[in-house]
C-alpha cells in the first residue's frame, strides 16, 4: 500500500499528453539562459514556466507526482539559473499551491477570468520571491523590475493558454468546463 498509487482521471485516448506541460516546463527552464542582446531583458525574470505549472495545478488530475515533479523542476531551475538552491523550488511549490486553491473557482471561468487569476497569482509569487531576496545577503532584487516581470509573465499567458488548454481537453475525461470552450 503506497500513498503514491491511486485512481486518476486521464482519458484512455489521452496517452502521454499529460506529460506535455512538464515538457513545456523543462523547455522553458532550458531556454532561460539564452543569450540576449537587450540589457533591459536581463533585468527581468520572465517566468513563463509558471504557465505550465498553472495548468498542472488546475487540471482535474489529482496525481501525487505533480507536486514532487514541480519541486524537482524547481530545483533544476535553481541549479541551471544559478539562483540559490531552493529559491525556485519554493516559488514553484508556492505558486502550485496557490493555483490548486483556485481549481473550484476556475471550473467554469471564462478565459479573461483565468487570465486575471493567473496574473494575481504571478504577482503574489514574485512578491514572495522579492521577500526572500530581502532576507538573503547575496540577492539584490529591484522591486519595480520584479513586479514588471510578473506583469509581463501575465501578459504572455494567452500565448500558451490555447495550446495547453487544448491539450488538457484531449488528456482528461473530465476537463475544466469553461464557458468559452
Amino acid at each position: 500500500m503506497t500513498p503514491w498509487g491511486h485512481n486518476d482521471i486521464r482519458a484512455p485516448d489521452g496517452g502521454s499528453l499529460w506529460l506535455v506541460p512538464y515538457l513545456v516546463l523543462a523547455w522553458f527552464i532550458m531556454l532561460d539562459g539564452l543569450p540576449v542582446d537587450y540589457y533591459w531583458l536581463t533585468h527581468l525574470e520572465i517566468g513563463l514556466y509558471l504557465v505550465p505549472i498553472f495548468f498542472i495545478a488546475v487540471s482535474p488530475s489529482d496525481s501525487d507526482f505533480a507536486p514532487v515533479g514541480i519541486a524537482a523542476f524547481g530545483l533544476l531551475n535553481d541549479v541551471l539559473s544559478e539562483a540559490p538552491i531552493g529559491y525556485w523550488a519554493f516559488l514553484f511549490g508556492f505558486f502550485y499551491l496557490l493555483a490548486m486553491g483556485q481549481k473550484a473557482v476556475l471550473r467554469e471561468a471564462r478565459m479573461t477570468g483565468i487570465w486575471i487569476n493567473f496574473l494575481v497569482l504571478c504577482v503574489l509569487t514574485y512578491f514572495a520571491g522579492y521577500l526572500i531576496g530581502l532576507l538573503r545577503a547575496d540577492m539584490e532584487i529591484n522591486f519595480l523590475l520584479y513586479l514588471s516581470s510578473a506583469l509581463l509573465t501575465g501578459l504572455c499567458f494567452p500565448l500558451l493558454y490555447f495550446p495547453l488548454g487544448w491539450m488538457e481537453n484531449q488528456t482528461f475525461s473530465d476537463p475544466l468546463r469553461r464557458r468559452d470552450d
Binding site: I70, L75, P84, G86, A89, I132
Partner: peptide, 28 residues
C-alpha cells in the same frame, strides 16, 4: 487502494518546506 496517507496539497506543502529549508540552510 484508494486510501491516501497524504493529499496532493500535503505533498506540495512538504515540498515547499523542503525548498524553504534548502534555501535558508544551504549557502550559495
Amino acid at each position: 487502494s484508494e486510501t491516501r496517507f497524504v493529499s496532493a496539497t500535503g505533498i506540495a506543502a512538504a515540498c515547499l518546506l523542503v525548498g524553504a529549508l534548502l534555501l535558508f540552510l544551504l549557502p550559495r
